[in-house]
Every structure is written in C-alpha cells, then in structure tokens.
C-alpha cells in the first residue's frame, strides 16, 4: 500500500505491506532507528512514539494506520536548532540511562505527557515510569529525570546540571 508517514514534520512516501508495524516502517523504511524494538508485544515500551500527540506502542500499530497522521520520534525531540529537549538533558543529568536501549521509549512517553500537561505531578510521573521496562537503571533515576524535566519545562529555563 502507498502511504505517507509524516515523521518529525518530514514526509516519507512509502509503499508498505499492510502487516508492517509502525516500528519497522520507522526503523527500516524511514531510517529512523532511534525507536527500538524490545519485545514486540507492547510490554517493554522501548518502541513508544507519539502518534497524533499520543504516546503509543509502535509495535502494536500498523504503518498503514498512520497514513497522514503526525508522528514524533526521538529523532524529533530536540529543538529546531538542535537544542536538547529538557527531557534529554534531565535524563543525562539524573543518569536516567545506562545502555540506552529503552531510553527513546521513556523519552517519548514522557514527552507526550509533558505536551499534554506540563505540570506533571508525582503520581503522574510514577504512572509513566511504571509503563515501560528498563533493565539497567532500576527506574528511580528515570523518575528523577522526568520530574526534573517537568520542573525545567515549567520554569521555561535552560536545565542546568546539578550534582546528583
């Protein structure tokens, strides 16, 4: 099927089989390999991207379902001038990643939530962190990172690194 994926504001005209899941279309057809596949059953969340602003498992959506719908991936998280997103800074500052494989999923999950409501409370942040799997960090640094990013986002300030 001929479709056009609109990813991070760029158009990708594709000819895909209907069975092709969004994650594979993003990775192999659009060359956006920042989205990772960790389980292909919707559990781990490494493949989480924003479809029409909503954080979804891109292994549980078909590419053909996303024809013409705006998609955002980790490659589109930084600002237009390459300025890192507060989440990207916060993940580094709080050591919210080690091997980095699950990281894009957590970033996009949190980015979607921050877009909806920049005033994320502790319970909302916990709910987000509970949604994905990480095998390296033990999650607490990820919780701190999202909380920090929400704070920086609200303050609208450049996230300055502090000692952990």
């Amino acid at each position: 099927m001929k479709i056009t994926l609109t990813v991070n504001d760029a158009a990708y005209p594709l000819d895909v089989e209907p069975r092709r899941v969004l994650a594979d279309a993003l990775r192999d057809d659009c060359g956006l390999t920042g989205t990772h596949l960790g389980c292909e059953q919707g559990v781990c969340g490494a493949c989480t991207v924003l479809v029409d602003g909503e954080a979804v498992r891109s292994c549980l959506m078909l590419a053909v379902q996303c024809d013409g719908v705006p998609i955002r991936t980790v490659e589109g998280l930084a600002g237009p001038g390459g300025e890192p997103h507060p989440l990207q800074r916060a993940f580094s500052a709080e050591r919210g990643l080690q091997c980095g494989f699950c990281t894009p999923g957590f970033l996009m999950l949190a980015a979607g939530a921050l877009d909806h409501d920049p005033r994320l409370g502790d319970e909302e942040v916990a709910d987000l962190v509970r949604s994905n799997l990480c095998r390296c960090t033990g999650y607490e640094p990820i919780r701190r990172a999202i909380t920090r990013a929400a704070r920086d986002h609200q303050n609208g300030q450049e996230g300055r690194h502090r000692s952990v």
Partner: peptide
C-alpha cells in the same frame, strides 16, 4: 551538557545498535 559521553547519541536516537 551531557554527563556521559554516551548520552548525546543515545538520547537523540543516534545510537547505533546492531539492528540499526
């Protein structure tokens, strides 16, 4: 800006795992 040298590429989708 990045506490670890690994961080920039891994946080921007520029990491390169074998499947990438």
């Amino acid at each position: 800006r990045w506490l670890r040298r690994e961080d920039e590429r891994l946080l921007t989708g520029a990491g390169r795992f074998v499947a990438d």
